[in-house]
Amino acid sequence: MRWDWSTVIEVFPLIFDAMWTTLGLTIACFSTAMIVGAIWTALKRIKFKPFNWFISFVLEFIRSTPPLVQLYFLFFAWPMIPYIGVTLDPFTVAVMGLGVHFSTYISEIYRSGIEGVPKGQLEAATALNFSTRQKWTKIILPQAIPPIIPMLGNYLIIMFKEIPLTIVVGVAGMLTVAEVYGVNNFEYLEPYTIVAFFFLAMSYPSSLLIQWLEKKMNRRFVNKPDKKGKGVTAT
C-alpha cells in the first residue's frame, strides 16, 4: 500500500462534503443533549426519595451502557415496541441516541454548576423577598452558567468524536463516506487518514480554545470561594 496523491485529490472533496453532515449532526446531538440534560437536572431536584432513586438509576443505566448498543436499540428494536414504536430514520436515531446518552453527562455538569453557587446567595435572595422564578433567573443561573461553559465545550468536542459511531446505522458522515470509497476502490489508506486528519484539524484548535476559555474563567472567578469554602486561586 502506497500513499497516492491522485487518490487524495479524488477523495478529499467527498470527505469535505460529508464534514458538513458530521458537523450538523454534532450540533443537533449537542442541542438535544443540552435540553434533555436540563430536564434530567430538573427531575433530579424533585425531593421525593423513590422518584429520585428511579431517576438516578435511569441516568446510571444510560451512562454505563455503550452508546453503540443504544443506537442499535433505537434503530432495530424501537420500531418493534408496541404502541410507542415508530420507524426512525438514521439521522433521528443518531440524534436521539447520542443526544440522550450525553444528556446524562451534561446534567451532571448543570448540577455541579448549580451547586457551585454559594448557599448564601439563595438565602439572601429569599431575604430580599424574591419569587422562586426571580431567584432562578436573576440569582442562581447567572452565576451557575459562566463557570460551566468550558466544561460544556469539552463535551462538545467529546461528542464530535463520537459521531463516527453513527456509521453503524448508516448516517453519511465522514467515516461512512471514507468506508464506501474504500470498499469500492480497495483504497483504505488515504480516505481513513484524511478522516483522521479532519478530526484532528477540528478538535485540536477547539480544545486549545477551551483551555484558553477555562483560564479566562478561572481568572474571572478568582477568590470566589467554592462549596468547600476554600478559595480558588489562579496559578
Binding site: M1, L189, V195, F199, S207
Partner: peptide, 23 residues
Amino acid sequence: IEIFRGTSLVVQLFWFFYVLPGL
C-alpha cells in the same frame, strides 16, 4: 497524546484495522 485525543476512537479503530496491516 494530541493525535490520539484529537481523533475519534472509531476512526482509529478503522485506521488500525484497514490501513496499518497494509502499511
